[in-house]
Design a protein around this nucleic acid. Sequence first.
DNA 1: ATATACAATGGGGGTTTCCCTACTTCGCAA
DNA 2: TTGCGAAGTAGGGAAACCCCCATTGTATAT
Lengths: 217, 217
Amino acid sequence: MDKIRIILVDDHKIFRDGFRMLLQSFSFVEVIAEASNGNEFLDLIEDHQADIIFMDINMPQLDGVEASQKALEKYPDLKIIALTTFLDDDYLEQMLMAGVEGYMLKSAEIEEFEKAIVKVYEGGNYFSDEIVSLLSDKLNMLRKKRKKKDDLPEFTDREKEVLELICKGYGNKQIAEATFLSIKTIEKHKSSLFQKTETYNTVNLVIYAFKHQIIKF
Amino acid sequence: MDKIRIILVDDHKIFRDGFRMLLQSFSFVEVIAEASNGNEFLDLIEDHQADIIFMDINMPQLDGVEASQKALEKYPDLKIIALTTFLDDDYLEQMLMAGVEGYMLKSAEIEEFEKAIVKVYEGGNYFSDEIVSLLSDKLNMLRKKRKKKDDLPEFTDREKEVLELICKGYGNKQIAEATFLSIKTIEKHKSSLFQKTETYNTVNLVIYAFKHQIIKF
DNA sequence: ATATACAATGGGGGTTTCCCTACTTCGCAA
DNA sequence: TTGCGAAGTAGGGAAACCCCCATTGTATAT
């Protein structure tokens, strides 16, 4: 059986050495290359066909986020597992959006790495428990923020209807035609919306609606 | 040591019976009540002080999503672990946004339930691996969608500047003042933006910008 | 039963803002 | 040097916005 080919990207040689040893204690993996920053890595992947990349996030020159983005743009099938020393949640979202297949703490147990490699190699994902907790905390934060902002004014049915059409890009005339009402009435509903939302023109109203998630994209 | 008090909410009596047996094989937990749908549950929590709720999602009358939302509105400190038979991703987001502390498959291993109870009781979160994978897949979907839409037109510096101000809710006059240009010039840049984005007025342009994520909220 | 309140509808008339067409200038590249 | 695109300007018509007003229906309070 072919070994799983792995590339390590981390700016600390000592870590790479230690991690390589650890990985090679697994009979089924082979570290085929190493890079000490994002640029080096981008050069590397031109010549090396890897199955999995272990990618540090904090690196000089080109960090893990950008390196991953660029690499995945060129080779969308690359499987990247992000590595981080501590729970730096600033990068978490960015890395996830870049499209990494895994996210782990460097301090993870040996068994965790084994599990992660197998899972990702088979097309799955792997995230450390700590990462999952962090993500869920973020979701909770979002939820609470939204709750707070939920001091939204109450709209009448007509107002909601008009607001929706506004957010579809309709002008007063078109809204009037769509609702079989007169332009004047539409104007009235709009100015009620302005008052309730403390906005003063259509553009601001639309921005308000998007920010408060009244409208779904 | 006090036992961890648990409430089960599921519309299948057989499942509740089985699950209660399973849970009570852990010496540190106690099932203090059961409900067969969301409404029953909402009545229950008025009289019972529970540490953790195991909440089924698909239920008659009032489903797990709404029940959780309502319960958490009244008692924000409730800890809810969502249970699902299969990977019905339609509800995943809703449940997470409702603010559950955990999300598991009913088919999980006994050890998983033990781990989940302890973690959640201690203020953490627990998500089955399958759930985490699903979430990550969703993120990847999002990413890919965004990539596709990236056939964005190119804007000149001025246009970008103007667009940003527009999306802050500035009118032509205010943009002119902010950029030290004449209103007429701003109008010109705007009409260029209209052409490039195939929109025909400011409102549509703003909608375009938000949809294509040119602007960050 | 009679106010009071407000959602919903619509009109007159006015000011402001938006947006299109047409024209000029400037810089840069073929 | 000529052509092209970015940047800037002008005038005029269309749309948006505002204030005042009036009518109808449906609640809720007195």
